[in-house]
């Protein structure tokens, strides 16, 4: 195991053993190694320091480093598990694992709750939902009157905010998602089933036979 892992650890700060990462995630060891090929390419796209900064993250996602977006920023913050302003390989694999088709449903619910709880208070507040709606309208070029936005918010909070305290807590979110399973569609990436074929070069560096 030694050579690949120790070399990668020197070049890639925060690099974790693929066998351990596989045991903690929905990925096999080969899939973790294939993800490392993707990670190497993203983390060297602007600054070759073995870490993914926000610019590299956005460049990989949108092919455009200048795009400033509320949702992209929030996803970066959630991938930055250790809150260092950069994403290391362990963060990358553990975060992407939530999007694996085989990842536990509860993990997807938790991640989506954190995603929409913009300020991390443990509640999705009406003001946050309005902010996200406005961001979506700006991004899509869709125009809705403020009155219509308020009607959508009223309807959403009537359904989701069961105790009607003006904010959605974790348990209310779990119930709401159960009633509206399509809300979790963004939490599954079918591509993650095929990463070993998307990044076949991992076999040249692989340390395991699977």
């Amino acid at each position: 195991m030694g050579c690949f892992h120790s070399t990668a650890s020197k070049q890639f700060p925060g690099h974790e053993d693929p066998v351990i990462l596989a045991s903690q995630t929905a990925f096999s060891v080969s899939e973790v190694e294939a993800l490392f090929e993707l990670y190497k390419s993203i983390s060297s796209s602007v600054i070759d320091d073995g870490l993914i900064n926000k610019e590299e993250f956005q460049l990989a996602l949108f092919k455009n480093r200048k795009k400033e977006n509320l949702f992209a920023n929030r996803i970066f913050e959630l991938f930055d598990v250790k809150k260092k302003g950069v994403i290391d390989f362990g963060d990358f694999v553990k975060s992407l694992s939530v999007f694996h088709p085989n990842a536990p449903h509860e993990d997807k619910i938790d991640f989506s709750f954190k995603l929409y709880d913009l300020d991390g208070t443990g509640f999705i507040e009406r003001q946050e939902v309005k902010q996200m709606l406005i961001a979506l309208l700006c991004e899509s070029g869709m125009k809705l009157a403020d009155e219509t936005v308020e009607i959508i918010l009223d309807k959403t909070f009537l359904e989701a905010d069961v105790n009607q305290d003006g904010k959605i807590d974790k348990s209310e979110w779990q119930n709401f998602v159960r009633q509206n399973p399509s809300l979790l569609k963004i939490m599954t990436l079918p591509y993650l089933r095929d990463i070993t074929t998307t990044f076949p070069s991992f076999v040249f560096h692989s340390e395991v036979d699977e």
Partner: peptide, 29 residues
């Protein structure tokens, strides 16, 4: 009622339409 009326859609269904919440860009070369 118009079935396409946005008032029949909940806020999170609309928010989920954001292309910035789609991580498939990582895998598109």
């Amino acid at each position: 009622k118009n079935p396409d009326s946005p008032t029949l859609i909940n806020a999170f269904q609309l928010i989920g339409m954001s292309s910035c919440l789609d991580l498939s860009g990582f895998f598109e070369k």
